[in-house]
Design a protein around this nucleic acid. Sequence first.
DNA 1: CACTTACGTAAGTGTAGACTAACATATTTT
DNA 2: AAAATATGTTAGTCTACACTTACGTAAGTG
Lengths: 102, 102
Amino acid sequence: MYEIIKAIAEPNRLSILKMVRTREMSAGQIAESFGSITRPAVSQHLGVLKKAGLLTEKREGTSRLYKARPEGFASLKEFLEEFWEPRLQKLKTVVENENNEK
Amino acid sequence: MYEIIKAIAEPNRLSILKMVRTREMSAGQIAESFGSITRPAVSQHLGVLKKAGLLTEKREGTSRLYKARPEGFASLKEFLEEFWEPRLQKLKTVVENENNEK
DNA sequence: CACTTACGTAAGTGTAGACTAACATATTTT
DNA sequence: AAAATATGTTAGTCTACACTTACGTAAGTG
């Protein structure tokens, strides 16, 4: 769980997550959209995010495509919900049931 | 929002939050239950948590009593929910309505 | 008003981690 | 197989920050 918090507790990493939330992006594309930091820095951030289970990596040719992995956030969400609002636990079940019905 | 993530991205601070989740505790009491770190260190952590809006402080004589402040987590919870599962937004409204009915 | 109690604050130190530059690796192209 | 492309890895630097020691402060007590 801590790995996740640490992973998102860094501005550039959170920016990366936002970028790959809806679409796949290559490491190079991600690095380009950063004016400030270099490609190796991005690569290292991707490593941290991937290790925390927040990204999927797909190799395609010489490129590697990254995409956010929502399931990776599950343990953090659960922690927050249980910690602050035990009542939400009930609702979580409702959501899961809805999803199963689809 | 970042202030909140940074605040909980430190093991001792998260421990403090767990301690004062259900009951009020003085700074001294909190410091005592840490075998490892000193009282000033705890005091500094309390400052960070308070600044992030995660704690309430109540002065009582020479003591200061701290307690977790669930509302402080709202923006982080909202961010996570919206970021990963936009569908939960719907449920959030349900919860709020339930609470209003009480 | 001195003294004690319960704190916060400031200054200085050590370390984790974010960064860059240089190098290594893997896949495609010629 | 050499060259080009896209990327990861390593070594070293610099800064943020968690920590301790020493000091400052504010509220009770004799």
